[in-house]
């Protein structure tokens, strides 16, 4: 009995020691990465923008980016984005197509490709800065009179010095959309989503695809290199390389750029 008691006491000590050593808040936290929203890490030739807000367009001027980084190679061009709210207040104007178009989407069944127009109300036109090249809103992209072509390149290193390849590309300008720029989600449970009626570039917007179902939505990113021809005839290259923040927020875009090419 004495031996048994001694063994038991020893075991109890081991147990208590283990208990004391064991963190009450868990172990092996080193398995995980610690995200930091404040420290956005970009490299030269890269832009970052949190475009997750349903109610904002974010604008940038590629010429200003080029000028700023040429003057100071350490300059972070991500600070050059400017943001403007999407107008959602109803106005009285029978002659405008600017406004909010509500569509029903079959989000619990066949998906977004099955949709029906339900209602429209006019709003003020989308405000924008004086000079800009592209604007982003979640998975949508628009341009300032530019045209965009998709290439077979998957890396900027594949872009030839000789620009003759550009002649074989098919450029597409912005086109009208009233069912893709989701800006109002207050009746989403019924499959009803308010869209901004606005010109968007559907080629460049194809870099990030959203699917519903599933719920929550599934995102698919394509690493296509796009060539953009600005309205002044200059060319640039754009590529989406990440669409998530460090904490996983979707539509936080990391964009590789080269301008001019």
């Amino acid at each position: 009995m004495t031996t048994a008691l001694r063994s038991y006491t020893t075991w109890l000590h081991i147990l208590l020691a283990t208990l004391a050593l064991q963190s009450c808040t868990g172990i092996l936290s080193g398995v995980y990465d610690e995200p930091s929203e404040d420290e956005v890490i970009t490299v030269a030739g890269q832009l970052y923008i949190d475009a997750s807000d349903w109610g904002k367009w974010h604008y940038i001027d590629l010429q200003q980016v080029a000028d700023s980084t040429a003057a100071n190679p350490d300059f972070n061009p991500s600070g050059l984005w400017t943001s403007f709210d999407i107008p959602v207040k109803e106005i009285t104007d029978d002659n405008t197509r600017d406004g909010i178009y509500t569509y029903w989407y079959d989000v619990f069944g066949s998906g977004l490709s099955v949709n029906e127009f339900r209602s429209f109300y006019p709003t003020a036109p989308q405000p924008q800065p004086q000079k800009w090249s592209i604007a982003v809103h979640r998975n949508n992209v628009r341009t300032n009179g530019a045209a965009v072509a998709a290439t077979d390149f998957r890396n900027f290193d594949e872009i030839p010095q000789d620009k003759s390849y550009i002649n074989s590309l098919v450029f597409q300008k912005d086109t009208w959309s009233e069912s893709e720029v989701w800006c109002e989600q207050s009746r989403m449970l019924l499959g009803l989503i308010g869209n901004q009626g606005i010109m968007i570039n559907k080629v460049l917007s194809s870099w990030l695809k959203v699917d519903l179902p599933p719920i929550p939505p599934a995102f698919t990113m394509y690493d296509t290199v796009f060539i953009i021809r600005l309205d002044d005839g200059s060319y640039g290259a754009l590529q989406l390389v990440n669409y998530q923040s460090q904490t996983g927020t979707k539509c936080c875009l990391t964009i590789n750029y080269r301008y001019p090419i």
Binding site: T25, G26, I27, Y32, D33, P35
Partner: peptide
């Protein structure tokens, strides 16, 4: 017993935990 949930973001290579439930009992 410790049960964790995380999202592994392949693009950035980050595995970010968003849930941890730890229970010590005697």
């Amino acid at each position: 017993d410790q049960y964790d949930k995380s999202n592994y973001m392949k693009i950035s290579g980050m595995d970010v935990r968003n849930y941890s439930n730890v229970q010590n009992s005697i």
